[in-house]
């Protein structure tokens, strides 16, 4: 009896831990997809290069941290830099694509990816950039008795939730937020209101760049910072946006957490679970295989019932 209890307890702890890891991954996804969903929704532009902003954020973080030794100072430096990068990309490339069809947007922003991936190799070299956590963030806390959990991951979840709250406040309470919402659901209307729509687009893009950069900064100590890391996140962000509904911040948040948790928990639990059920060599292959497909299957299922995503922001 006692033995089973112990195993169960262990499994439960593992589950909680994986669940939190999933939330933390979900926060990254939210920070990336929040900006991207607005760009897609308001400007109707497919921007593949959004993942590059995440990558740039991580590279800037490693450099700034190397120079200053402080994660907070790095953050403060990173925000205006990413804003500037975002605005520059919008002015130089994205702006020329608004009137083009989706095919052109895909190819041109694909060109941006190639450019940025190679640019970071030229500037920072091919080796992964190191960034170790400062002491005050590298400890553990006991979330349950005898269940330590890294402080840093909790901080990420906290920051993510704070950003989400701030974003909701901005979207629902401020004038700019009102324009963004109007733009996401009814673009001609914003133009008709006599708003400087070019400026609005530029600001939204810059804001999205800062969020993606923030995700990159926070992820830098957890993963190796190297060329091409943005694209893996981009794929997840697409899944998030498809599930959440283009142009919907709320959809992006909900879908990010769903995908983050499904992906993380699925990857750790599914192979074990498969072994429990089938207990054979087949399971050793099938487990990881199924885990790698899980979120996409989830996306397909949701799409089947809701082709416009969970929170369709667009009307008409």
């Amino acid at each position: 009896m006692l033995g089973t209890h112990g195993v169960l307890g262990m499994t439960l702890l593992l589950l909680i831990e994986q669940f939190l890891n999933g939330m933390q991954f979900g926060v990254f996804l939210f920070l990336i997809s929040a900006g991207l969903t607005l760009v897609l929704g308001i400007m109707n532009v497919v921007n593949l290069a959004h993942g590059s902003l995440y990558m740039l954020g991580a590279y800037f973080a490693s450099t700034f941290f190397g120079l200053t030794g402080s994660l907070i100072v790095s953050l403060v430096l990173m925000i205006p830099v990413m804003l500037l990068v975002g605005i520059l990309i919008e002015l130089v490339v994205l702006r020329t694509l608004y009137e083009r069809d989706h095919m052109d947007q895909v190819l041109a922003t694909f060109g941006l990816i190639l450019f940025f991936n190679e640019l970071v190799r030229i500037i920072w070299g091919v080796e992964a950039q190191p960034l170790t956590l400062p002491m005050w963030l590298s400890g553990n806390v006991e979330i349950l008795p005898d269940a330590p959990y890294p402080v840093y991951r909790l901080v990420i979840i906290g920051v993510g939730m704070a950003v989400a709250a701030g974003l909701f406040w901005m979207i629902t309470k401020t004038r700019m937020g009102m324009l963004i919402r109007a733009g996401a659901s009814n673009r001609p209307m914003v133009g008709a209101l006599g708003i400087n729509i070019r400026f609005l687009y530029t600001m939204v893009f810059g804001l999205g760049a800062v969020f993606a950069g923030l995700a990159g900064l926070m992820a830098a100590p957890l993963q190796s910072v190297e060329s091409g890391i943005g694209e893996d996140m981009l794929i997840f962000a697409f899944v998030v946006i498809v599930i959440g509904g283009i142009g919907s911040i709320r959809g992006a948040l909900v879908a990010s957490l769903i995908i983050g948790i499904f992906e993380t928990v699925g990857r750790s639990i599914l192979p074990v679970l498969m072994l429990e059920i089938v207990d054979s060599e087949a399971a050793q292959t099938a487990g990881p295989a199924l885990a790698s497909m899980l979120v996409y299957i989830l996306m397909a299922v949701i799409l089947f019932f809701k082709p416009q995503g969970l929170f369709p922001a667009r009307t008409g």
Binding site: R100, D104, G111, L114, F116, I122
Partner: peptide, 13 residues
Amino acid sequence: QFYFGPILILLVL
């Protein structure tokens, strides 16, 4: 790719 990226953008445009 550093050169090809911008070339691609110009081709599209």
